[in-house]
């Protein structure tokens, strides 16, 4: 009750109206969605059987599949994720700088950079992969570029925000000393945002490990290719091996990132 009273004082009538409108819109959107979405109920009836069947086919796992096809694909996935991340860092750095309003105080440039970042993030890694497979042909090159282009938006946005939060003082001091713009960036902004930059890079690498695991479904290399093969042939015991591998690698990557981060910060 106390909480209610406090909340009562916190909001003006206009804010309460806005909140109410938001809840109303949210509920309406949900109701409309549930009513209009196309669901074929017949498919749902045998879902439990299908799930049981799925797990029955998955177990026992075909462990021989790992050395045969999964291991090499896994290594390729790791390379795609890592190289894609490195590439995206190089690409995202300039875009992030252009997006930061305090570093480049030209609104038109900021807006353009933001548009680039949003485009990169809106198009999924899988869709990026489709595009690059169409251009460069199937294989790891398309996957690496897909990871890189999808990551530009993420890295660039967070890096730009870190720049905008940078302390203005050193920048003023170096500007007042007559330093040219690149020197101001190198010596006043970069030292401040460097830890954030590497932290973002690590974070994105972790995500990219996950993302690169599915690129093979559209022919962009990596462990997804092994998954795709097993799926098309309906060898669910091999699918299980791939899934278990992905799970292990993802958990391992998360542990690595957490460890490095706690060391650095």
């Amino acid at each position: 009750m106390i909480a209610d009273q406090r909340r009562w004082e916190r909001f003006t009538p206009r804010e309460r109206l806005l909140r109410f409108t938001f809840y109303l819109v949210a509920v309406a959107a949900f109701v409309v969605s549930v009513q209009t979405v196309e669901v074929i109920p017949e498919f749902l009836y045998d879902a439990p059987e299908q799930v049981v069947d799925l797990f029955a086919r998955m177990w026992p796992m075909d462990l021989k599949y790992y050395p045969k096809a999964v291991h090499a694909a896994l290594i390729e996935t790791l390379h795609i994720a890592t190289l894609g991340t490195i590439l995206s860092l190089g690409l995202a750095l300039p875009v992030g700088i252009l997006a930061a309003r305090n570093v480049v105080p030209v609104t038109a440039i900021n807006q353009f950079a933001k548009l680039v970042l949003v485009s990169s993030r809106s198009v999924n890694s899988l869709v990026w992969a489709l595009l690059f497979v169409a251009v460069f042909g199937p294989g790891a090159l398309a996957g690496t570029l897909a990871i890189a282009f999808r990551s530009i938006g993420f890295v660039g946005k967070l890096f730009g925000e870190a720049l905008e939060e940078a302390n203005r003082g050193p920048v003023e001091a170096l500007t007042a000393a007559g330093a040219p713009w690149p020197s101001v960036f190198l010596k006043a902004y970069w030292p401040q945002v460097q830890p954030a930059f590497w932290s973002i890079a690590l974070f994105r690498w972790d995500i990219n490990i996950r993302e690169s695991a599915v690129l093979g479904l559209v022919g962009a290399g990596g462990i997804g290719v092994a998954l795709d093969t097993a799926l098309t042939l309906l060898y669910w015991d091999q699918v299980a091996v791939v899934l278990a591998t992905i799970f292990a690698v993802v958990i391992l990557a998360e542990i690595i990132v957490t460890t490095i981060r706690s060391r650095i910060i």
């Binding site: 003082g169 000393a177 330093a179 040219p180 690149p182 020197s183 010596k187 006043a188 460097q194």
Partner: peptide
């Protein structure tokens, strides 16, 4: 507020006073 670059060394902070005289590459 002094406006030093906190993560640079004292020496480099002093040399920041010379940034107007050297190229960014040399900096």
């Amino acid at each position: 507020e002094y406006n030093l670059v906190e993560r640079l060394s004292v020496m480099e902070n002093l040399l920041c006073g010379r940034l107007g005289y050297i190229s960014p590459v040399r900096a």
